[in-house]
Every structure is written in structure tokens, then in C-alpha cells.
Design a protein around this nucleic acid. Structure first.
Lengths: 330, 330
DNA sequence: TATGCTCGTGTAATCCGTTACACGAGAGGG
DNA sequence: CCCTCTCGTGTAACGGATTACACGAGCATA
């Protein structure tokens, strides 16, 4: 593989001049530039970026840390991040943590090892203090999920308002027994969506009934299990509608309803959260709170690059608008 | 940020000794080792991997090139690749090409720029000659899709046999008007699945009817459009079953059937391909050909690392077993 | 003609580890 | 007591680029 030295020799100039041509410095005579370009072409020279990166102390890589890329909700966000990163000349390194804090730590260690310049965290399993420490040393952005109170940039929808909108809508359809598939992790969306649910009930003077809240994760199995529990309740206590913390969980609820011999939406209404592509592919198409996934990704990346350019920039908290998408599951 | 020199000074040894400790060379006295480890701890030293990588001329990165991570079929494969890469100490760089050959070229350029050591291609849009050229210079594995005849390693299921099994199964249910949602790209799965379809029809002496084949891509919209066309046919000509080239397309077909007032599976049977997680979450759960996605990823990675260790290793062609998963859409 | 610019270019230091080679000390054998 | 080995360690070259600094040439100004 040709090196910059080979090009220099071939073109009859010094390595400095070759480097200047590559980096489009104006201080190169047209003549020298032509000879260098010619040599580069002849030798099929491509700069060794390991050398450049070492010299510049940058990797031009951003970490995208998430529990699992198999969750289609993240996939679309990643595309938003990638599109911004590409125009900035950065690469996206995918970091599946499987929700293990230790794997997350290993990946984030790449920052201090200089293999990455910044990171976007989707659902941090790190403790707040670790996060804070880290963000003093490296550009960091939380996307969608975040630790409330941490002085780390973040971008997300207003989860509380979004959940409130979803439940208000169910109330407006006349539902009074509205169940919630929730999660009690340490992330804001867990709390906020729960709070939004209670907000809406309180507004409508519908008493909160703990029997109508089941906890789990954000996946299909959780929805199925919670749904099974809800629909096992005898008719007066059984919910007539379910608000699920994610579309995946909502799909599980729909399946549980069918298994219990209930029709959606006639016997039970279901609302999801996220608006993944699948929400509109299934039958019945899912009513859900749409998160602007692609824009969440883009925005997170934009904030990250701002911090990369100006390390002194203060952390930003950005909220993007959500949207209630009414389909046929309600 | 501390460098190896700082550690050396702090520990009262030379940088060589520090390096030996880090790389677990046996030629270090227990005493020196202890002092070095102590200094590393005190300074919170982490080796700058840019320096190491330059010296070793490796990036410890594998490229995973695919059209779109939003397709859940790929997501699971990526996890298989990642799990193997992690134990090898490699990172996975995600390369969404959006099916643009140019973007694919840019990403693969990272190989010659030393930012990556090898690549796994999911659905190459490069020409065969480019591929061949590339694989002489760098370890390369094609996963799932591949250019037939290219002397580049690959791992996939036997697409032709798989499609044959799917159609045989529909025939065994008594279907005679079996439609196919196909694709006419240059990839093998396009051809092979088509061939398998014809194989099965021929075996059963069912005449091939071009009216029952529609072409598109692998996505939901394709399935919907092709399904709409099929179900617009008047009853004697209308298919009683559809075999779709992917689960996503099958989902589109199911939606089209519903839109046409047809019940699945009573009026029309649908079989997909891939067995993505969603196939079992929808209603009716999809009968499909399961590809061992995770293992496809693992195997591709294993072949890649074999080639990385021994660049002279001959290309491998590996076929993994598929499986007909019968659910309720047939 | 001397002075001071600008311009183009080259030399060499630098980024940070890794490792070939050299060297001195101590052990063991003859 | 000398020779040979092994062991632990250090020095310095090296990987491939970037860039501060220096320098000579050419030109304009005084």
C-alpha cells in the first residue's frame, strides 16, 4: 500500500506538499498540485487514516449506544443519526448493550481510548453519577430516554404530555376502565408516561385503580403478559381500553385480547406508543403516539456535533413534538 | 490524558516495560509489573488505541453493510455478528447504504483507508467485478444475499429449496392457484426463490401462470401493491394462496387481502419468508420460511475472522438449514 | 540598492504505542 | 575462573500522516 512518502517521491515534492494537496490547502502551486494529483492517481494512493487520526487525535466516530437494534423503534432513530453523521464525515458505531450496564461501560470506554469522539445514548443503564462524570470529559447526548436531573444534553418528546394525550383520547371515547402497561425502571419515560396517565384520569375525575396498572419492559412479551392479566379480570373490573408504553407492548395486548376472545376495538381499545413502522402494517392498525424517530436521531446528532465543535457549549434539553395517530385499534 | 510515557516515569521504568505489562508479556519482573500497575491505576491511564492501531496497522473494526437497519430481518443478523465480534475484540461499524451503490463504495473504501479490517455484505449493490477485486485485498463475506459465481465467501440458506418447501406446503393444502411476490434484482435470492417456486409447481404438474407473479422489492409496500393486483383478478383466476419473498411483503399481502374483503387463511393463504420476530406477533401469525438469522450472522462473522487470521484461506460457501414454520396464515 | 513582503516548499518534530535489538547482571556448567 | 545462557530492561526505530518553522526566490517599495 502506497504511503504519502511514495507519492512525494513519485511527484518530486516533499510529503508536506502532498499533505497540503490532500487537505486542500491553498498554498500549493498549480504545477505541484497537478504533479501530486497525478502521482496519487498513478499509485492509487489513499491516505492511511490511522496515521491521520493519531496525529489529529480524533477517530471521526460516534457511538450509538442502545439496548437492542432489533427494536425497530431504535432503527429509525439510528438512520437519523447516521444521515447527520455522514455529512459531517463521521461514522456511526453501533453499540448493542443488551441492557447490561457493563457492556455499556466497555463501549463508552472507547471514548477515553480515543476510538470514538462522542456518544449518543438511547437508554442509559449507567448510574447518573457515571454519566455526569463522563459528559465532562466527552460530548454526550441522551436520546429519547434520559436521566432526569442529570446535566447531560438530551432530546425526546414530552412523555408526560404524550401519555396524557393518549389517555385523554381514550376518555373522550367514553372509556372509564383504562389500563396501563407500564415499566418501573429508572428512566423518565417510565415515570412520565405513568404521570401523564394519572394526569388525564384526574382531569376526568376517574379514580386511579392500581389493579389496572401492570409492569414490565417495553417488549411484546410484556404486553402479552399484562394483557392476559387484565383480560382475566371479570367484566365489571375488566378494562375496556389499554394504553401501552410501547407499540410492541400494544401488539402483545392485542394478541392477549384475541386470545381472551375479545375484539379490538369493539370490546377493548388499545393505544400504543412510538409509532413504529409496523403499527400501520398490522390488523387492526394501531392507534398510537407517534414519536418523530428520525428527527429525534437527527437532533441528537446535531447537538452532539455542536458540542464536538465547541466543547464548552452548555448542555441542551430539547423536546420534539409528539402526535396522536388515530387508527383502527380504538 | 496520561500517556505511556507518563506511566513509565511515574513507575520508574521505560515505556517498553509499561507496554509489556499492558500486553501481558511474560518478560517482566513481578516487582516492575506491580509498580507499573500501580502507576496505571494512579494515573487512570488508558492506552490511546489510535497509536496502537497505527503501529499494528489494524483498526479492529468490521464493516456490516446493509440496505437499511430498519428492516428487522437484518437487525437480528447484526446481533449475531456483534456477539462474535465482541469476543474477538472487534467493533461493528454499521453501514446503511439505502441501496445506493455509491454509499456502499464509500463505506468499503474504509478498508483501504485502514479504518476497517474486513466487511460483511448483506445485499451487495456492487458489481461482481468490483466485489472480486475487493475481496482479493480484504477479507469479505456475503451474508444471505450473494452474487452467484463470485469467488467471495458467502453464507445463506438454500433459497431455492426453501421456496420449494413453501410452495410444496401450499400445494399440499390443496392450493392450485398460487401467486408469487418476487423481485428481479441481480441477487440470488431473487432467482432462487423464483426457481424454487417453479420447481414445486412442476413437481405437482401445476402449470406456471405468469399472471400469478408480481415483482417488486422486499418491503411492505411491495406486498400491498402485488396483493392488490392479485386480488383484483376475478374468482377463477384469483389466487387462493400467495407466497411472498419476505415477511414484510407477506404482511402487505395480508393487508391487501383484508382490503379486498378476503379472509386469511379462509379465503387466501399467505406464506412469508425470513421469520422476523413480527411474524408471530401479527394476526394471523404468519406461516413462513424461517431463516436462522442469528446464526447466519454468527457464521458470517466466524468466516470473516478465519480469513482475517489467515488471509490465504480459500473462500467458503456455507448453507444453513431453513425451516418451514406453520402458523395460522395458511 | 537595500528592505520587507508574500508565496511555495521542505525539514523535522509530533501524535502514542510496539518491538527489534542491545546490554548488563546473575546463574549454571566445565 | 571463564564461558554461555537466560532474564529483565532500556534505547530507539517505526507506523503514516500533519504542521510549525525556516528558508529562498521573486517582487514591490523607498
Amino acid at each position: 500500500m502506497a504511503t504519502i512518502q511514495d507519492v512525494a517521491t513519485q511527484a518530486g515534492v516533499s510529503v508536506a506538499t502532498v499533505s497540503r494537496v490532500i487537505n486542500e490547502s491553498p498554498r500549493v502551486s498549480p504545477d505541484a498540485r497537478a504533479r501530486v494529483l497525478e502521482a496519487i492517481g498513478r499509485l492509487d494512493y489513499r491516505p492511511n487514516l490511522l496515521g491521520r487520526n493519531l496525529r489529529r487525535t480524533e477517530a471521526r466516530v460516534v457511538l450509538v449506544v442502545l439496548p437492542s437494534i432489533s427494536n425497530p423503534f431504535y432503527a429509525r432513530i439510528v438512520e437519523g443519526i447516521e444521515d447527520v453523521a455522514r455529512v459531517e464525515g463521521f461514522n456511526v458505531l453501533l453499540c448493542n448493550t443488551g441492557d447490561e450496564a457493563e457492556r455499556e461501560r466497555v463501549y463508552l470506554g472507547m471514548l477515553s481510548q480515543r476510538l470514538a469522539d462522542g456518544a449518543i445514548l438511547m437508554a442509559p443503564s449507567l448510574r447518573v453519577d457515571e454519566l455526569e462524570l463522563l459528559c465532562h470529559a466527552h460530548p454526550l447526548v441522551q436520546c429519547c430516554e434520559f436521566h432526569a436531573g442529570a446535566t447531560v444534553s438530551h432530546v425526546s418528546v414530552d412523555d408526560r404530555a404524550a401519555a396524557r394525550d393518549a389517555v385523554r383520547y381514550l376518555l373522550s371515547l367514553g372509556h372509564r376502565r383504562i389500563a396501563l402497561v407500564a415499566s418501573h425502571g429508572s428512566l423518565v419515560s417510565d415515570h412520565c408516561r405513568f404521570d401523564g396517565y394519572r394526569d388525564a384520569l384526574a382531569e376526568a375525575d376517574v379514580p386511579f385503580d392500581p389493579e389496572l396498572v401492570a409492569y414490565g419492559r417495553y417488549d411484546f412479551a410484556t404486553g402479552r403478559a399484562c394483557g392476559d392479566a387484565f383480560f382475566a379480570l371479570p367484566p365489571p373490573r375488566r378494562p375496556t381500553a389499554v394504553f401501552a408504553i410501547s407499540d410492541l407492548a400494544a401488539l402483545g395486548v392485542v394478541q392477549a385480547a384475541r386470545a381472551a376472545g375479545l375484539r379490538v376495538p369493539e370490546d377493548v381499545g388499545v393505544v400504543g406508543f412510538d409509532d413504529i413502522a409496523f403499527a400501520s402494517m398490522v390488523d387492526p392498525p394501531l392507534t398510537t403516539i407517534a414519536q418523530p424517530q428520525y428527527d429525534l436521531g437527527r437532533t441528537a446528532a446535531e447537538i452532539l456535533f455542536r458540542q464536538l465543535r465547541d466543547p464548552a457549549a452548555p448542555p441542551e434539553d430539547r423536546f420534539l413534538p409528539h402526535r396522536l395517530v388515530i387508527r383502527r385499534s380504538t
